[in-house]
Design a binder for these strands. Sequence first.
RNA 1: GGAGGAUUUGCCUAGCGGCCGAAGGCGUUGGUCUUGAAAACCAAAGUGGCGAGAGCCACCGUGGGUUCGAAUCCCACAUCCUCCGCCA
Length: 425
Amino acid sequence: MIDLRLLRTDPERVRASQRARGEDPTLVDALLSADEARRAAVSRFDALRGEQKLLGKQIPKAAGDDRAALLEQAKKLADDVKAAEAEQHEADAELKRLQLALSNVVVDGVPEGGEDDFVLLETVGTPRDFTADGFEPRDHVELGKLLGAIDLERGAKVGGARQYYLTGVGALLEIALMNMAMAQATKYGFTPMITPSLVKPEAMEGTGFLGQAAENVYHLADDDMYLVGTSEVALAGYHMDEILDAGKLPLRYAGYSSCYRREAGSYGKDTRGIIRVHQFEKVEMFSYVAPEDAEAEHQRLLEWEKEFITALEIPFRVIDVAAGDLGSSAARKFDCEAWIPTQGKYREVTSTSNCTEFQARRLQIRMRGAAGVQPLATLNGTLCAMPRMIVAILENHQNADGSVTVPPALRPYLGGREKLEPVTG
RNA sequence: GGAGGAUUUGCCUAGCGGCCGAAGGCGUUGGUCUUGAAAACCAAAGUGGCGAGAGCCACCGUGGGUUCGAAUCCCACAUCCUCCGCCA
C-alpha cells in the first residue's frame, strides 16, 4: 500500500513507477482526488460530531422548555451526523479500494520493461559438458522413473494435470533438502516455522496476491478461504496488526509449507515433468526489518540463496528482474536461475523480493523506535522450492548409467548416501 | 453440529445510558533518595485521522441497530474457554 504522504509530495515518482511496470499511471491522479475527498469528508464529520457532543452535554443540565428545544435541535443534528458519517465511510472505502489497487513503487535502478528485459548480474559455476562426458543427459522425468523417484502417470490419474508423486528416494530427497535448508536457515538466525497453507482473505489481500496474481490463487468459495502459493503469506500475516519493538529487529523466519498454484494462463508451458506443478513444498525465508535496512537485507537474502544452490553444486545465474515482471508487492526482485541441461537454459529456482513497507502498510505491521511508530519493511526469498531443486539435482548430477551422484553437502541429510541408483524391475 | 460463558487502554482487571478515552494493580520510562542497586515516593506514558498551531475527532472483539446521547441496551458475526456428540 502506498504511503499517502509520498503520493501527495511526489506523485510523479509514483507515476513513473507505474509506467516502468507497464501499469496505469492515471491511477495516481484518481488516488490524489480520492485522498482529498476523504480529508474533506473527515473534516465535515469531525465538526458535526464535535457540535453534537457539545450539545449532548447541555441536555442533562437543562429543564422544561429549554430541554425540549435542545432535544429538538439535537434530533436534527443527529441526522446530519449520521449522513456525514456515512459519507466519510464511503470516502474511506473508495480511497482504500484505490490504494489496494496500486502496486509498490519500484526501487531506483530496477530495469524497465517486461520478462525479457532483466539485467544479468552474475553467473556462478559452469554448465557441465555432457559431450565431453560422453553421454546424452536424460531429463528429470526419465531419471525420476529410473530411480523410482517421481511418478507422474499416477499423479495425473489421481490428481490430474501437473500433479505428481514423489516416491522412494524422491520423497527422501525432498525431506533431505528440507532439513538442509532448515539447517542453513537456523545457522543464520532464522526461526523455523511450519505455517498454515489455508488462510483468510485479509492475509491474502495484505500480501498483495489478490490483485493481478489472483487468477493463480485457489479460492475455496464455500468457506471464503485461500490456499497460499507461498508461506510468505502466512509469515507476513504472522505479525498482522502488531507493533513490533524496533530493538528486536530484524526478525527472520524460515517457513515450510505446501504451496498451491492454479497456473492459469500457463497452458502448454512446462507440461512435462515437475517444473510447473499445482502443489509443492517450499522453505521460504522471511524478514521484518527497519525500512533503511531493507536493501541490505535483500542482498543478504540473495547471498543465502546463492549459498544454498552453490552447496548443491548446481550452476546458476542471478538476474535483476525488470519492473514489468515484478509482483505487485515487490519493489525489486532478484531471481536465481539454475542450469537445466536438457533444456539448455537457466530456469528460476529461487526468487527474493524487497517489498519495502508495502505489505506492512496493508497488514498494519509497524515498529516502535526512536522515531516513533512507523511501518517497517518486509522481504522474502526462496531457500528451497522442492520440485525445481530436485529437477536441478537430478539433471546436473546424473551419470551415464542413470544413477545420480548426491552432492556432498546433501549427503548428511540422506543418511550418508553418495549415489542414487536406478531401481530394477 | 448442539448448550453455556467470555472478549475493556502492553498485561490483569473495575466500570450506574450523559461528568468515561475510561478507575485500580502490574509492567515500562523519567526523576527524587542511595556509593550503586532494591524499596519507597513523585511524574510521564495508547493507536489513528484532521489541522500551520492551539486543538478537535475516532477507537472498549467486528459490523449494524435503538437513543438527543452507547463500553453500558438490542441484533448479527468472529475469536477464545467449558460441556455434549462426531472424528484424524
